[in-house]
């Protein structure tokens, strides 16, 4: 048996999000948070289904999707490995973007918007900007 996998997945059957998408999203979240790093092995399909009792093809579909996006690679007989991290550099260290957002948020508050108003506005702009992009 190879070294143990770096993450495990939680499947929420009531969330309304397709099971394979939950695996894709949780992997991406782990990449953003630095829980997964390049070279880490994802759990095998067998490990995932034994723990979650979901269909093996669902796991394979999620891994194919992650591979298609260039985030992981399958190495025959060894498993599926992380190739690169996700966006964390830009999120934490891209100071100019962050500063602009801080300034905009302060202006919004000065204009009388409360936290929920700002969040709703931001989400609406986010949705319309990224409309049509897969899984964002």
């Amino acid at each position: 048996m190879a070294e143990s996998a770096a993450v495990e997945f939680r499947i929420d059957r009531r969330s309304g999000v397709a099971t394979y998408l939950q695996i894709v999203q949780q992997t991406k979240q782990a990449l953003r948070l630095g829980v997964l790093e390049p070279g880490d092995r994802l759990p095998t399909a067998r490990e995932v289904v034994e723990a979650t009792a979901i269909n093996p093809n669902t796991v394979l579909k999620a891994y194919r999707e992650l591979e298609r996006e260039g985030l992981v690679e399958a190495r025959r007989g060894l498993g599926t490995f992380v190739r690169r991290t996700l966006g964390s550099a830009a999120v934490t260290t891209d100071a100019p973007l962050r500063e602009e957002l801080v300034a905009w948020t302060l202006r919004a508050r000065a204009a009388g918007l409360d936290r929920d108003d700002v969040s709703a506005l931001f989400t609406a702009v986010l949705d319309s900007t990224f409309k049509g992009d897969p899984h964002t």
Binding site: A45, R46, V49, A53, N55, P56
Partner: peptide, 14 residues
Amino acid sequence: RHQLMGLLMAEAAE
């Protein structure tokens, strides 16, 4: 149920 279903799925995967 969860455990045996998991075992069945693992067999199917392998």
